[in-house]
């Protein structure tokens, strides 16, 4: 594929060296530590009693844990929905902001604001604007006669499952937008001009030029977003703490509870290792499919 300087990899090693050193110094130990703990029975409250149990944690999670599979299913639904919606929204806005309109710089910054707000603050304000009694969204919808009773955005289990997806999309789409906008910038204008001369309309040039050209960027940003969303703890926790009645419980919250409130850090590490294996299998296959289609 890429030819470059393939004969002189030494220079390449030199280029990746700074990042390798940092990662070896800081990231590898915590990761290996996590793997090691996953084979242990280790309760933080009684550190003296920790001992090696082999694959016991894994078999417990997979075969006897009553909580795991239910949480796994919602985790997947949640993650897929967030990635898909934030991609669509991010792409739509990137396309709009790529048009030569005036003040687009200002619009671009304005639309990126969700990213700037500390998550804790965003969560408090979301629940205020979505409140059934004083929230501006319900007040507006009721006054304009669109709905009668208030929508219980966070007060009804199934609605809350959708609400946390939407607020997570709110947090995620700016990344998609920025990356896709950069991707759009990389598509040579000549391609569109040629297509225009050949009589292609906007829709055709979108499907036959824009989308294929964005493929590389798309595969990377959706993969990363999938991993981040699947592992994200605070988006949901800050808004609902996994409630009501654990309807919005996802694996990172389960891991957190297990590790800290139940103090079972070995068991929690095992859950994380399973998550890692699932994510790795999925993302490598996903990336391979993307590559082969190119």
């Amino acid at each position: 594929m890429r030819s470059g300087y393939s004969r002189n990899n030494a220079i390449g090693y030199f280029f990746i060296l700074p990042s390798v050193l940092l990662i070896l110094a800081i990231s590898i130990y915590p990761l290996l530590n996590g793997f090691a703990l996953s084979g242990m029975k280790y309760n933080l409250l009684s550190p003296g009693e920790r001992h090696f149990v082999g694959l016991q944690n894994f078999s417990d999670i997979l075969f006897t844990d009553g909580e795991f599979y239910g949480v796994l299913v919602y985790s997947f639904v949640y993650t897929i929905a967030v990635v898909a919606l934030s991609y669509v929204l991010g792409l739509a806005l990137a396309l709009l902001l790529n048009i030569g309109i005036r003040a687009r710089g200002l619009f671009r910054a304005f639309i990126l604001v969700p990213w700037v707000v500390p998550p804790v603050i965003a969560a408090v304000n979301w629940s205020w604007v979505l409140n059934d009694q004083v929230g501006i969204v319900n007040l507006f919808l009721q006054r304009s006669g669109i709905i009668h009773g208030a929508i219980l955005f966070l007060g009804n289990a199934s609605v809350a499952q959708i609400t946390v997806i939407l607020t997570s999309v709110w947090k995620s789409f700016p990344f998609m937008m920025v990356v896709l906008l950069a991707g759009l910038q990389g598509i040579p204008k000549e391609l569109y001009e040629a297509a225009y001369i050949d009589g292609a309309d906007t829709r055709q040039s979108f499907w036959y030029i824009t989308m294929p050209m964005l493929k590389g960027v798309t595969s990377v940003c959706t993969t990363l977003m999938f991993i981040w969303t699947f592992n994200n703890f605070e988006n949901i926790y800050l808004l609902t703490q996994g409630g009501p009645s654990r309807a919005t419980f996802v694996l990172p919250i389960l891991t957190y509870f297990t590790a800290f409130f139940r103090s079972e850090i070995g068991y929690a590490s095992a859950i994380s290792v399973i998550m890692l294996v699932v994510l790795l299998t999925l993302s490598l296959n996903y990336l391979r499919i993307f590559k082969s289609r190119r």
């Binding site: 629940s127 205020w128 059934d132 009694q133 004083v134 208030a150 955005f153 007060g155 009501p244």
Partner: peptide, 22 residues
């Protein structure tokens, strides 16, 4: 009580009470 109570965190109950609605 508000029908949405199940989704109320302390900050929401604060907002409803201190805005004079309860």
């Amino acid at each position: 009580i508000p029908q949405g109570t199940v989704g109320y965190k302390g900050s929401d109950a604060d907002k409803v009470f201190y805005s004079g609605k309860a």
